[in-house]
Design a protein around this nucleic acid. Structure first.
Lengths: 225, 225, 225, 225
DNA sequence: TATGAATGAGTATTCATTCAT
DNA sequence: CATGAATGAATACTCATTCAT
């Protein structure tokens, strides 16, 4: 009991230590030594749990993906599809999705996929399977409901889901300098709302307005400042 | 003179050799030895021209960025803003932009920025300055012209330009498994056209149609196959 | 009792597992883990029985030595010193001694002594004490009997015993490529008989002949083929 | 010129440092670091010259073999086959051959072959080709000359050569405790002479006597002391 | 200027050994 | 007594970088 408990704890400690190190330094630069130290275990323990650096990396990616998946799914469950609140809720969900994508765990995933999928294409598939597809599927379902309710003109909900993500993220990289610089929350919020607004315009909503009182048009172009 | 000429040649040879190696292997995995061999020079020559690996990397990124910039600008110059052809031309420009983003040189940039900008944020700024901003500015100008001509409802051309790029790329990563797998040209074409169509819908065009006879709606969802 | 019985069993299982692993892989390359797995016990059990790798090794060597000793002594006991049969018997004993030296257990000893005696000279002494000297003494006694019976001119039986072993092994390493390649039994047999024949010639037997009908002179030089 | 010269020097320095370390510690225990330090070069230099530990080992073995070969051939060239001196010369050559086999370089080879040929059978073949066979061939030729001159009854000179080596070495391992202990020169000398004497007795020489005045029979059994 | 040769620093990995259970 | 879990120490190997030529 205790033995197994301890084992589980160490496994978690290693994964928790590995994710930010891999995320900030990349696969090559990240050293097993550094991960072991950060996790408070010795190097051979890592090897006994994960077999090697490559496998530790894959399991770390998969672990981050499921965590990211859970966060995003929880956000999507808050989407209110009632005729009165669905627009305001969609704005809020967009903002929250981007927020949870900007979490360190998620930035780790984003960078990692881009950087290492050339070396190991399996990684992209893993992440899509564990995090990408479930989230897209969930959003696809919600958009289909809105379409069926006649609130949204959505011929292809799966395509719409992908475009929704593309639009809410359209300005994020330049606002955060690709995740290397923190950005003010309200700046990000307005950038996301601009994306949601365009999404709604493209799907038959005449003049969508974000719920809060701040004007979208003023903040839509934050690079100008 | 001959000396300078030869020097220029070597510099170019090194940059030409470095880009694909950095692009496919990443900064850490790429060895200066391999680049020197591929360029047909010796290692100290690289050091005398570029000072070190880090700087060679930066100059390689900047070099790729200007090349990428030139390609995209040439594409944008083909955009026909005449009332009769602007829609079809926008569809074509979208397809061509994605094509030139999928070139190996550009994939190199994309991966590199994602992978290494945490380590060296300067890289992101360099690429945006040399490639990102000029392209966005050029597209912004064209969209403003279409707006002024009353063809497109575009309140914020700079925002519209960013959203245009986001939409035409919305499905590309999953179609190409993040650039690791070749995708059929017509599949990519339809995915891009779906993005352009949404862009036009959001900006006041009632029922935009891609120029070729292939139906967008059928192919808008290529993952289903 | 049961406890002690089980303990003895485990001790034997460990020794039986250790000998071939040490013999084929050498002291350094052999891992305690591999021996524990092969013996069906856990690593700490090995430490509790033998204290450490070095001591396990010594005990394994000593164990193999006594086994080897028993085999060789049994062979020597079959030496017939009767005036009618002693020659044929000596040929047969030579062949059997080489056969039992070529057993895997013995090859292990041979390699081990050569390889590790520089690191731990105690090993050579152990093996000589447990296996070498008893065998030489036994052969010395037999040769002395033959000398006393006037069948063999042997001024120094102890020296003769050593030379007997040297001669029957003279060609074995090259025939078996130092034990790494199996050699046909009859080829080995003729090589050994050539050694016995020279031994007999040196000790006053005019024209010794091996018992079987195969001609020694034809096969004395197997490398020529 | 100088560069190459230096290169040759370093190669030799590495080989000279490697042989005793491999010889005393064995392949596994010998560390590349130790060899580099002993040779006065850095580790990467060893890798650039030899590619890796395994290849350094093979080249070290081959190098020792050719050195050993040269020494032994020089000794064999001193063998006087004249009717007056051939017996005394054969005694002397036997002693000198054992002496050069007891050199550190040769002990290295002997241990190495025994220890590592199971892991890499190529090693045995290399040594036999570079050192064993040439020496045996040279001795075979000399013995054939003695046979043709009617001085020695040698039906099979190649076999005789192998038996000559076996007999002169018959007592050496126990005298030197397998090379781990120095032995007095005159003790070794008498042991070798005992082997030569037996060889001569077996090949038709009635009562061979070693050249020096020391009695062989007294010293033939040094283990008794 | 261009280079072959050399190196110091750093990494993944393995293994004998020891506790806590 | 037997063991799963953990570790400190050690090793082969690589690479960016720099001289001497």
């Amino acid at each position: 009991m205790a033995g197994r408990q301890r084992g589980v704890d160490k496994r978690r400690a290693i994964l928790d230590a590995a994710a930010p190190i891999f995320g900030t330094q990349g696969y090559e630069r990240a050293s097993v030594d550094a991960i072991a130290t950060a996790a408070g275990v010795s190097k051979p323990t890592i090897y006994s749990y994960f077999g090697g650096k490559e496998n530790l990396f894959r399991e770390s990616v998969a672990d981050s993906a499921v965590e990211q998946n859970g966060d995003a799914l929880r956000v999507l469950q808050t989407l209110d599809v009632s005729p009165e609140r669905w627009q305001a809720s969609l704005f809020e969900v967009g903002v929250k999705l981007v927020e949870c994508q900007r979490s360190s765990c998620s930035m780790f995933l984003y960078r990692t996929i881009a950087a290492e999928s050339a070396r190991d294409p399996e990684i992209y598939r893993t992440v899509r399977e564990k995090a990408g597809d479930p989230i897209l599927d969930a959003l696809t379902g919600r958009l289909a409901m809105l379409g069926n309710a006649g609130l949204l003109q959505v011929a292809d909900p799966a395509l719409a889901a992908r475009q929704f993500f593309a639009l809410i993220n359209a300005q994020i990289p330049e606002l955060t300098e690709n995740g290397t610089r923190p950005a003010a929350d309200d700046v990000v919020r307005r950038a996301v709302q601009a994306g949601v607004r365009t999404f709604l315009l493209a799907h038959g909503v005449p003049d969508p307005q974000p719920p809060a009182s701040t004007s979208v048009s003023q903040a839509a172009h934050p690079l100008a400042s």
